[in-house]
Design a protein around this nucleic acid. Sequence first.
DNA 1: ACCTGAACACCGTTCAAGT
DNA 2: ACCTGAACACCGTTCAAGT
Lengths: 225, 225
Amino acid sequence: MPPAPVSRRERPAKPALTRDGIVAAAVAIMRAEGLDKVTLRRLAQDLDTGPASLYVYVRNVAELRAAILDELLGTVDLTPVTAPGDWRGALAAVLASYTDVLIAHPSLARSALVSRPSGPHYLALLDGLLALLAAGGVPAGQAAWGVDLLLQLATATAAEQGTRNADADAGAEEDALAAAVAGAAPGRYPQIAALGPELLSGTGPDRLAWALAALTAGIAATPRP
Amino acid sequence: MPPAPVSRRERPAKPALTRDGIVAAAVAIMRAEGLDKVTLRRLAQDLDTGPASLYVYVRNVAELRAAILDELLGTVDLTPVTAPGDWRGALAAVLASYTDVLIAHPSLARSALVSRPSGPHYLALLDGLLALLAAGGVPAGQAAWGVDLLLQLATATAAEQGTRNADADAGAEEDALAAAVAGAAPGRYPQIAALGPELLSGTGPDRLAWALAALTAGIAATPRP
DNA sequence: ACCTGAACACCGTTCAAGT
DNA sequence: ACCTGAACACCGTTCAAGT
């Protein structure tokens, strides 16, 4: 006996596909299970369709990942940009918020590191950081080139830390480096042997804060050729 | 009629599998066709065996990629480290050599960005950079934290530039950003609209040279907390 | 125009069985 | 110990055919 057909009332009508709906479903999968699980096939399954159908709204999987990233960047706190006072503190606060967002999703941070975002939320972040550099009197040319470096540094740090915190597999890489540093032969690697654990010292936030301060100082102080 | 069996003299004996042999074959594939083509299946095919056999020598594909990277880092020119004179120039030269090596293999640069290398050639590079920072009188604590940033910056730049030069697909991301910057509404993104193409100005090497100079200056000038 | 099923051309990794 | 064939559990993307 074939199963009784499901009436329209019992199962809600399948929602129409839209780009926003697809991206929202992708973000939901990522929050729940990580970016690795956001595949076109899995996404299609969740949306009750086939993978081919998604190609009407998304060019490829890279574009989908970019859309997810921009969606998340919408949660970065940009309010320090318009707060009066210490521009360096505001810069650090915005970048810390950016880092926090990415650390919560290490796989996304890794993908952000190898892509060039250009979505509306990314532009807003860029604009905010440029406003702070301008407020600090950093020459425009230096700010234009420097803002990229600040974001890059924050992204890389988030990728690294988030991965270390969450992914057991990549924690092994960290361990391998620690072992290599600890076992560095003083004859062959004198500097590493001399510095030892100092190389890997410090907590993530402390290193990031120092790195951003150092980079900001360098950007402000180094004229373009 | 079955084909005549190939005598041992006509087909050279299949070379025994070794870790070095596997890595060498992997490097050969990467040089010829890029990192994307270095899969365990393809590698096994080239080595006239099955993918499962490789797992005796390599834990997984990530470890294989790390081995390829370290192999390539063996070609970085470290001679400036021991040359007398200008430490800043020597630092820039070593990092430029590192960048050149990675730019030639953008896919590898992207993978280096999300991994923590710990191979012998990587350690040698690290040691050389630390020697130069020490020669420049940079306090040890700052050098220990700063060397990571310098490498990170060079790696990210290589990944970006190499990709732009070689990969048509990721060139599209660059174009999308350029279009977004050019079309930025002055009301919504005042800083971006004001700076305009200045944000994306400059050649890769010029930007890298400035970035490394700025970061080096910041590292040297910013005391650790 | 939008959507689909099915196929194409692949992946990494595991495992029982062989030598 | 080393090596293998075969399987498991997936991928992104394309394309002819439908509505």
